[in-house]
Nucleic acid binder design. Sequence first.
DNA 1: ATTTAATTGTTTATTTTTTGACAGACAAAT
DNA 2: ATTTGTCTGTCAAAAAATAAACAATTAAAT
Lengths: 214, 214
Amino acid sequence: MEERLISKAVISRLPVYLRYLGELKDEGVEKISSKELSDLMHVTASQIRQDLNNFGGFGQQGYGYNVSNLYNEIGRILGLDRRYNMILIGAGNLGSALSGYQSFENRGFSFKAIFDSNHKLVGDSIRNIPIMDINVMPAFLENNKIDIAVIAIPKTAAVSVVDTLVKCGIKAIWNFSHVDLDVPEDVVVENVHLSESLMRLSYNINERVKEGAE
Amino acid sequence: MEERLISKAVISRLPVYLRYLGELKDEGVEKISSKELSDLMHVTASQIRQDLNNFGGFGQQGYGYNVSNLYNEIGRILGLDRRYNMILIGAGNLGSALSGYQSFENRGFSFKAIFDSNHKLVGDSIRNIPIMDINVMPAFLENNKIDIAVIAIPKTAAVSVVDTLVKCGIKAIWNFSHVDLDVPEDVVVENVHLSESLMRLSYNINERVKEGAE
DNA sequence: ATTTAATTGTTTATTTTTTGACAGACAAAT
DNA sequence: ATTTGTCTGTCAAAAAATAAACAATTAAAT
């Protein structure tokens, strides 16, 4: 089958396009050209056109792109035209923060349960999502169709929890622990390594200083 | 001056090298070759050598790299050989989570104050970091040398707060709000766009399914 | 001491990504 | 209806990133 793989760089730009298009839509803008969008986003028009044409011709020559239509198309490409059931592992500060994001829920990403090993937390709930003992997680997964597991626990605990998750058949992991997870090929992992982000910032702070000193 | 710009891709890999080297160091490993490290990290040895040689020759032919030494060198390159004073804007769930990360503090990143517009929170403190009124932020910045401002508030509020921060002379921003900040050239911004990360995951979930169906 | 194997730093080749260019298609104006 | 200007989709070129190759150097073995 003729279907080249889309590069990670392209995929990473799709949510950005979506964000800008969403803002335009909210402002009531009906159409936009790749040139206008490129000025807004500070990327080249060529890149926008080429990125989009990986997935189909959504524009019209002499006209441009219909904002609302393109917004929907990109959403569909990103898989935002369905719902996702999630569980959260770790009821700490980060987990609480994540479970509270209304924007995730609005996009169709819905937490169904929170698991923690701290018995003081078990039985409580955060925003109506029950906190359960980590030991009942396998049983829960058997009785509920869960699409995504969110890992918000220290790396020491993460590795073994992920092993369990994989054994239970989880196919997607959003990983906030500072470790590269070793999972089978059919399990997708998206990492959010905050400390790496912070280090990039500190690199750039000092790089900027050096430049200034030249 | 002869000093080509290091690409973002290279810089993004440095924290990963650091993480693996840190683990090796903790395990008491003294030396490692680019080949061994490449097996561990699932990247090519060539890339490791080329990345490192952007900054200098840290290895020795026929021997490899001294783990501890390389760890220190990369830390130095990333700017981890100094301390950073930070302020946090937004005492919500995410802000609380960020202020609680001991690993940031351990690396030299230290929160000095938290600012919020919610008067119910002002006067309180999180982990001994005082929560102050957002209005006193300019005065605080005049009296305290702050290196990094962490933005953990909704995008609607973020834009104007960032304007104020820039006016107060802040040169580095760690941005968790879902908006691209418009700042002068001499201000560095590192974005953590969680929703974009989640969308990449959902894209990959569905892509994986399609592959399987082929 | 000499040889052999290992391993870096760097050059060269390959691949991927990005940018530029332009023909064809459309919209709007006259 | 015809012309003019706009804008896409795609092809080609350029640039950047990655991987491979290899000479130079060192460590270890004999």
